[in-house]
Design a protein around this nucleic acid. Sequence first.
DNA 1: GAGCGTACGGTACTGAGTACCGCTCTCGAT
DNA 2: ATCGAGAGCGGTACTCAGTACCGTACGCTC
Lengths: 261, 261
Amino acid sequence: MPTTAAGSTGTTATDTATRLREAAYALFEQQGYAATTVDQIAAEAGVGRTTFFRVFGSKEDVIFPDHEALAARVAARLDTLGDDPGAAPLGATEAARIVLEHYLAEGDLARARYRLTASVPTLRDREVSSTAGYRRRFRDALRGWTGEEPGDDLRAEVVAGSIVTAHNHVLRRWLRGAVDDDGARRELDRALGLVLASVAATGRSGGADQVPPDDGRPGDGRPGTPAGGSTVVVLRSGASLEEVLPELQAALARVEVRVEA
Amino acid sequence: MPTTAAGSTGTTATDTATRLREAAYALFEQQGYAATTVDQIAAEAGVGRTTFFRVFGSKEDVIFPDHEALAARVAARLDTLGDDPGAAPLGATEAARIVLEHYLAEGDLARARYRLTASVPTLRDREVSSTAGYRRRFRDALRGWTGEEPGDDLRAEVVAGSIVTAHNHVLRRWLRGAVDDDGARRELDRALGLVLASVAATGRSGGADQVPPDDGRPGDGRPGTPAGGSTVVVLRSGASLEEVLPELQAALARVEVRVEA
DNA sequence: GAGCGTACGGTACTGAGTACCGCTCTCGAT
DNA sequence: ATCGAGAGCGGTACTCAGTACCGTACGCTC
């Protein structure tokens, strides 16, 4: 118990974690990740090696945010989707924004982490594999939306992966300094709009199934607000609706689509 | 297996590697991954511990295929795309098939690996991060297709991720025994068709840009031959019909389209 | 003050991964 | 046949991450 002011308790644990993290980042940037030992980090933070492993489970954990907790918050938001299919795009967008906002709040810490992960292969791998938890949560939430079964949920997996990819794309641009905070928020909306638009009608796998007739929300961050007018397209074809729908939807991107028979 | 080592020397090296791999898999299935030490594997294979680390760089490497070599083959196929945008879907499908065929050829070995990765978190992470190389290769190849720049290639990233996701979805179904070899090949065609169809028209980033009017190839591995019927699609949108019509027709290429008001 | 939970430090151990040295067998040249 | 030369292999010794266990100091409650 060295040098801790006698009055304050409770915040001690947090302080220890913070000191360890700061010491770790400083040493990593200075000597490199591999060349820095846990002993050095602990010594620099003024604690024992045991304490390091008690606070962070491993040398890698001191770098990364608590993805499990973050993914749990994402899942919680996704759970509020209920059975209303029209709420899915908005809900997914908000869920993704939870993650983005977390990084924005971290600020320079997130940037320092990016510098590390960009240069150390081990850490990059760790970061990549950390996306699996998010993909899984989005996939599970999206299954109700695609009407697929757990073993056979290609669409849900693809869309979930696309959401995560779109988020990470924007996040990386922010990490590199290509956009500022608000720019990142706007780009996330735009990117997810692009990704989710191509799914809106893909929806249910059953050929004649219902597609959300109208999501009712005007412009959830989508680009152009449509202004009425309707068009009827008659497809005469041997191709089933299911087959042409993805292409059709993609072609119409940001246009609301309703399918009748 | 994808050991590109020119066999100038005897078959000794390959034999040692094979013995080590078989010993490792046997011990892993019997005692579990964590409980098996490299010493045990080496002893079981009748070689020294040093030899193990000379042949496989790490304990994990003995399990996984040479993803780098495999991804290089994928990249080689992708390089033959040239500038013809119509060739992209076919080329991407064939590139993905290279990977699938590799696993199919592995047979039981791939299944044994799947059993391991499904139960050991460390190995699952490794497997997840190994997909990054494939995604990167597809993304780079697709950039010519989407007309995007390296720092700002959202579409290419999303499509690349979707291709890998679709492939892994089918692969996992095969690994679980849900489909046989030919079934997996067919499902890969179908899954990639679904994924790539939604991109065909998304193509170039410019909104009103030209999309390949017709790729001319009938059924590049697309699923079933359709059987007649017509479909009515109602578009409710602020976008004028003239705006969407070119894309729409391109998307439907092989489908007769009639537009009514 | 006695008991109790918590946070911490220290010691000792396992096992992966690395560096280095030395052995042996084979091949080709002289 | 002899002599390197090089490849493949084994052994030793070391570093360091991660785990298990024990002991201790502090604050809190009864």
